[in-house]
Simulated scan of single mutants.
Amino acid sequence: MIEFFAIRHKPSGGFLPAPKGRGGRGGSHVEPVPPSEVNPPRLFHSKHAASVALTHWLKGAVTVDYVEYDFGEVDELWNLDPKPHRKREDMEVVPVKMELPQ
């Protein structure tokens, strides 16, 4: 039995889905999805990792703008779009158990 952790929206029972962006990026842009529609939920190897991801998700959606200067240097401008409807008291980290065939 392997134990992972997922983030659940308590009022709806939905889970945060795995992001679809390049390299698994985009986790701050997802919203909880009903259990019947999420395939799969975003899974974390530890409760701590899920808690850290939840803390960042609650802050809002993050985008990055890349600026290239004339002399070839590239800079990243990180932007945060707050999502006031996201509330910590509505979310919880829950264990997910996976049983592998032997």
Results as ranks from 00 to 15, higher is better:
residue 59 K to I: 02
residue 45 H to Y: 10
residue 47 K to G: 00
residue 92 E to Y: 08
residue 29 H to C: 10
residue 83 K to N: 06
residue 5 F to E: 02
residue 68 E to D: 08
residue 27 G to F: 13
residue 37 E to W: 12
residue 7 I to T: 04
residue 70 D to T: 12
residue 93 V to R: 01
residue 88 R to C: 02
residue 87 K to R: 06
residue 17 P to S: 05
residue 89 E to R: 08
residue 37 E to R: 12
residue 58 L to F: 09
residue 21 G to T: 11
residue 37 E to M: 15
residue 16 L to N: 01
residue 54 L to H: 15
residue 62 V to P: 07
residue 17 P to N: 02
residue 93 V to G: 00
residue 95 P to K: 09
residue 55 T to G: 15
residue 23 G to A: 05
residue 5 F to D: 01
residue 44 F to D: 01
residue 78 W to I: 13
residue 21 G to N: 11
residue 60 G to E: 13
residue 53 A to I: 06
residue 66 Y to K: 08
residue 65 D to E: 14
residue 73 E to K: 13
residue 18 A to P: 07
residue 69 Y to L: 14
residue 91 M to Y: 05
residue 87 K to P: 02
residue 41 P to A: 00
residue 14 G to N: 04
residue 24 G to Q: 15
residue 31 E to D: 13
residue 45 H to C: 09
residue 71 F to P: 05
residue 86 R to D: 07
residue 20 K to W: 11
residue 40 P to S: 14
residue 10 K to C: 05
residue 28 S to H: 10
residue 56 H to I: 08
residue 42 R to F: 03
residue 21 G to V: 12
residue 72 G to H: 04
residue 84 P to F: 14
residue 2 I to L: 14
residue 53 A to Q: 06
residue 102 Q to E: 09
residue 99 E to F: 14
residue 87 K to N: 01
residue 65 D to T: 14
residue 71 F to A: 08
residue 68 E to K: 07
residue 28 S to A: 09
residue 12 S to R: 03
residue 69 Y to E: 10
residue 6 A to L: 00
residue 66 Y to P: 00
residue 50 A to I: 02
residue 91 M to R: 02
residue 26 G to R: 11
residue 89 E to I: 13
residue 102 Q to N: 11
residue 36 S to I: 06
residue 75 D to Y: 03
residue 80 L to Q: 05
residue 33 V to Y: 03
residue 23 G to K: 03
residue 95 P to T: 12
residue 17 P to I: 04
residue 68 E to V: 15
residue 16 L to Q: 00
residue 89 E to Y: 08
residue 47 K to A: 04
residue 51 S to M: 03
residue 77 L to R: 05
residue 51 S to C: 04
residue 15 F to V: 01
residue 13 G to H: 11
residue 64 V to N: 07
residue 98 M to D: 05
residue 26 G to P: 11
residue 88 R to L: 10
residue 90 D to L: 10
residue 102 Q to K: 11
residue 37 E to T: 12
residue 37 E to C: 14
